[in-house]
Design a protein around this nucleic acid. Structure first.
Lengths: 347, 347
DNA sequence: AACTCCTACGTCAACGTTGACGTAACCAAG
DNA sequence: CTTGGTTACGTCAACGTTGACGTAGGAGTT
């Protein structure tokens, strides 16, 4: 039997003390050299650097941030709904990219739209003394978020506004872009435009629905309640709902699908019934290969990297002490015509 | 002008000392209560808990891990190529999920396939004293990885093996699945099967190419050099290469596309030339909506969550002191027939 | 020559926490 | 009543680092 194994039995991580001993200086001098602070002569600097290299010294940021006056960990937390969702992932990527350019690393977690889990993750981040957090809030109450915010942690919400005050957020033009998309369909002559939306608890779903209503009103088209289907969480539910729409006596001639999985579900039904060249579709949220389908899917595309960058900018500015009033940044979305949104009604 | 603003001017984070003072006990007793260690009476425990709650005390994990003997940060680092790539994101998600169940958080970073950046990220992780790392290695030399590994940091490589020894890795059945896919095409009667691959520097590309060669050999089909196109980094290059193949005197009747963007590029060309119903295609790596195209794309699907889970399992086990010999775990991929791979040659 | 000022160091304590160890009180057994 | 053991605490120092401050020596000024 081997002795129960620590990975490196005897070797300890070298510390400033070790470097100092080897270079025959005080630890404070090593600190100065490592941090590039003035007050170390060239000869001593070289000696310290050489010692650090031979020992393989690596600064310990946790000890450093414990002692430092600013108490920074150079780390921010990012909580998303599900990192395996490309939307969340692209957002994370943008945040991470922007953060890295400020020497800040990202602690990432998925809250799975569960506020209990979100609360736990928030505690974990808090225990690690992150300098700030970017959060795609889980549904349900935001008490944990509010509590954390009130402790003074810089916080930015993405894709939904806070239910409490004093906090920045970044969203896209959900309502306006939805209104424009619906108005566009109406302008082509459509009078029976269905709305297919995700869970109604989501702020974005509500906004997009409001935009739909406004778009119809703006075009002078009456809203038909039976053409509105919500709470379609996932492509399967969207399929069922779409199928039902085409069993109506007066089926829709156009669909406004307010989320990308909903769009995909709807398209499946249209293709199965060979309606995809006759029923117009505009979807909210772009998705890969939307241009490869037949017809290409016209979508409202969010500027995901832009949203992430903005969120990171905000939280980093707050960490740097920016105390200006809270901001609700709106990153505009753009309509990308690909064919499916340009289909005219049969008449 | 306001005074240049710290976020909370006067308030300090409460510490164990504050809690101890309020509860009229020593800090050590607070430590025992917070960590659920024995040696605290019920009455004292209640008093400490109450004090902690009123002060809003949060344990400081960085101070704790500095003092603790095991020196754990309960944090692992994850370096991927580009988190905005769904493959990387799904992998991150799986790792994160598994880690969370052990109370471990994930520090994420994208190395953008640049080993200088990878080196910097590794230093950042090291400075934060992560307990281990999961890495999708950037191309080029792996010196920085090896160095970090030799310091004793538990490490698992994903999607490619290490160029140095003593390190775990997790990959999929690149060679075997490629061989089977090509053999499958040959079994349908195809004799002119093209290979379209990503950058040759990638280990996965090499393996998949080897599988292609083996598949042909196994079926007794001669390899035609002009049907092999590699270094197709991105869909655009794949399009060009595919177009060239169909300018050959004897064009291929089937394509084996060894990466998902390559598959998409190839499909674009086939559709543009109306060959998509006549030329067979099997792609390596699944992608969203592959089933929605016409025909659906037959793919070799990697078990991405399985790979991530396995990688996390390995690194967490090493952190827990597992000193068994290094493992090269292979998570099997599966063929998903959807139509494009079942097309038979014309004559 | 005495003075200031600056540079290049060093010394010390503290950041928030916990391991090692000490101690007082109590109970049970001899 | 002592002895030994257990329980419930407390005391102290240390983890690796840096802020505050001290000091020795040299250069420049009067």
């Amino acid at each position: 039997m081997e002795p129960t194994g620590r990975r490196e039995p005897t070797m300890r991580e070298p510390t400033m003390r070790d470097v100092a001993a080897l270079a025959n200086v005080s630890t404070k001098t090593v600190s100065r050299v490592i941090n590039g602070l003035p007050g170390a002569g060239t000869e001593v600097t070289d000696r310290v650097r050489a010692a650090a290299r031979t020992l393989g010294y690596r600064p310990n940021l946790t000890a450093s941030s414990l002692r430092r006056s600013d108490r920074r960990s150079a780390t921010i937390g990012v909580l998303f709904e599900d990192l395996s969702n490309p939307f969340d992932a692209a957002l994370l990527r943008a945040v991470e990219d922007r953060a890295r350019h400020s020497g800040v690393l990202v602690l990432a977690g998925s809250n799975e739209d569960d506020h209990t889990l979100q609360r736990e993750l928030l505690l974990s981040l808090s225990a690690r003394r992150v300098d700030g957090v970017v959060v795609m809030a889980a549904g349900g109450h935001q008490d944990a978020l509010q509590h954390e915010r009130e402790r003074g942690t810089p916080m930015v919400l993405v894709d939904r506004p806070p239910t409490f005050g004093g906090t920045d957020c970044v969203t896209t033009t959900n309502r306006e872009s939805s209104r424009d998309a619906v108005a566009r369909l109406a302008a082509l002559g459509h009078r029976d435009i269905a709305f297919l939306g995700d869970r109604r608890t989501l702020w974005t779903s509500q906004e997009r629905y409001t935009g739909y209503v406004e778009g119809l009103a703006q075009a002078g088209v009456a809203l038909r309640g039976e053409l509105v289907r919500t709470d379609l969480h996932g492509a399967d539910l969207a399929e069922t709902a779409t199928a039902e729409l085409f069993c109506l006596e007066r089926p829709p001639t156009a669909l406004f699908t307010a989320q990308n999985l909903v769009t995909v579900g709807a398209m499946r039904v249209l293709r199965a019934r060979d309606l995809h060249r006759r029923v117009a579709v505009i979807g909210f949220d772009d998705f890969p290969l939307a241009d490869m389908l037949d017809p290409g899917i016209t979508v409202v595309r969010q500027d995901v990297p832009g949203i992430g960058r903005k969120a990171a900018d905000l939280v980093l500015a707050r960490i740097d002490g920016d105390t200006s009033p809270p901001v609700h940044a709106v990153v505009p979305a753009a309509l990308v015509p690909r064919g499916s949104g340009e289909i005219v009604p049969l008449s």
